[in-house]
Simulated scan of single mutants.
Amino acid sequence: MRTIAEINDKISRQAAVVCTAEEIKARVAEVGVAQTAKTVDVVTTGTFEPMESSGAILNLGHTDPPIKIRQCWLDGVLAYSGFGAVDLYLGATQVVDYPGMSEAADGEENRERGGGHVIEDLIAGKPVQLRALGQVTDCYPRAAFETTITRDTINQFYLFNPRNLYQNFIVGVNGGDRPLFTYLGPLQPRLGNAVYSNPGAISPLLNDPDLQLIGIGSRIFLGGGTGYIAWEGTQHFPLQKRLPNRAPIGPAATLALIGDAKQMDSRWVRGCYFKNYGPSLMIGVGVPLPVLHEEVIARCAVQDKDLVAPIVDFSIPRRVRPTFGLISYAQLKSGRITIDGKPVRVASLASIFLSRQVAVELKQWIEAGKFLLSESVAPIPQDRAFMPQNLWGSQVSLD
């Protein structure tokens, strides 16, 4: 029906018809797939959820005399410095760990602060304290320095996130007898609550289940700025079992994303903390899907009742945990589910409201002619198996 070049021409003339994923589902229910496909050019999807496999690349610029940084802390958070002399990678889940920090300074507020919070502050234009120790060489004679940086006083500052946009995930519960503190947040004992983290039918990759419309190089909304799909994500598992509608029944595809953090907005990149687990980063990501043919609309018409996730019991401390079966996102979003005959309250880690707002903002960019779609340069692999790490010859204790 269309090409990306034809759609971009309409975007440039501000003549493209753009709908959010929610609007598409409503339109299909009203006029059907074929009629919708004739009139819509782009579908925007969005999510705002914790994405802990994220971080930022920074280049500080050289000091005089120069330094070859081998240890560096940003507001007390350790950054990786094992490559270029003044290149750093700040991981979202890295915690405050400042040498010589006194017990008085190591308060609750500091313990809850991590790389994600520093990234948010830099994006917001706030000053960040930097302390660096160097390896003294003939090229780099300086041994240490301290300064204050902002996003405007360093060269490069961009997010490079090895694993974002999980295509589906799990529902966490706790069938044990004590509270558990997990990457889904606190799970109360004896099935006291359930937590899920995917926004369901408006989530980007659930509207393009076989990743036919995106690939390496695809332009996206990332943290309030323009980003790109850089590669498959870590733990990419497209061979996950799927329903007849091609939706995976659990964690499946993932994407590595990249984008200029100097263009981003701290509204869409926020540090967060999970009690007794650690810091992380909430990120808004939106993916535009070009309507190239009717099948695009058919896939985007998927509803929460047609998508499922496994209910996983975190009380069993193993890599493969037992499940209580599959549950639909429609049931999850009702706020209460039933497990083994017991009513269980449910909460979402993803903000459904802000996920919708990501899709709306991306729609507005496209309608205004400010955001063009891009052809991918290579497909996302569809044949990756999920390989666990088996500790052959090692004695592993679960105590």
Rank of each mutant, 00 (worst) to 15 (best):
P189E: 06
V173R: 08
P199Q: 07
E22P: 00
V28R: 01
A201C: 11
V95F: 08
D41P: 09
D313E: 09
E6C: 01
L307K: 08
Q188S: 09
G100R: 12
N59W: 12
W231M: 06
F353Q: 09
L78Y: 14
F353T: 12
P50V: 04
D260T: 03
Q188K: 14
D306E: 15
A104M: 10
Q240T: 10
N276V: 00
K342G: 00
A92Q: 05
I339K: 05
L349W: 06
A79I: 02
R163W: 03
F169I: 00
G91L: 08
M51W: 13
R27Y: 03
A143H: 14
N245T: 04
A56L: 12
Q167M: 06
E112Q: 15
G116V: 06
T226A: 11
V96D: 02
A261M: 10
L187N: 07
I229F: 04
M1L: 09
K262Q: 14
I220C: 06
A194R: 11
R318K: 12
W268C: 03
A247T: 08
P251F: 03
A144V: 02
G224D: 05
Y158F: 15
P322Q: 08
E295C: 00
I7V: 11
G134S: 10
V312G: 04
R111I: 02
V95E: 12
A85F: 05
L326T: 01
V17S: 10
G215E: 06
P189W: 08
K275E: 14
V128G: 06
R219G: 02
K342V: 10
R219S: 12
Q35C: 00
L292D: 06
T3G: 09
V195L: 11
G84A: 12
Q188I: 05
N276T: 01
S81G: 09
S218N: 04
R219V: 02
A368W: 10
Q331L: 07
I327H: 07
T39A: 12
I352Q: 15
A301M: 03
Q382P: 01
D152E: 15
A5G: 04
P99L: 04
G114I: 03
S203P: 02
L122R: 06
F314R: 08
A5T: 09
L332C: 02
L332G: 02
P199K: 09
P127Y: 11
G175P: 07
S394I: 00
K25T: 04
G284R: 05
G55C: 08
P66G: 05
E108C: 02
E30Y: 05
V291T: 03
S53E: 07
G259L: 10
D265Y: 06
A5R: 13
E112Y: 01
V195I: 15
T323W: 10
E109M: 11
Q167C: 03
S351R: 11
R142L: 15
L362V: 03
V377I: 14
A15N: 14
A261L: 08
D306G: 04
G393W: 13
A92K: 05
I316V: 15
R178W: 03
A144E: 15
R242F: 04
L60F: 15
L74F: 15
L78W: 13
G32Y: 13
A85G: 00
V360K: 13
A359I: 01
R319A: 11
E232P: 00
D306V: 01
L349C: 11
G82H: 14
G259A: 09
C19A: 10
Q395M: 08
E232K: 07
P199Y: 13
P127S: 07
S397F: 13
D383L: 00
H117Q: 12
T153F: 02
F145G: 01
E232H: 10
L159V: 03
G278H: 11
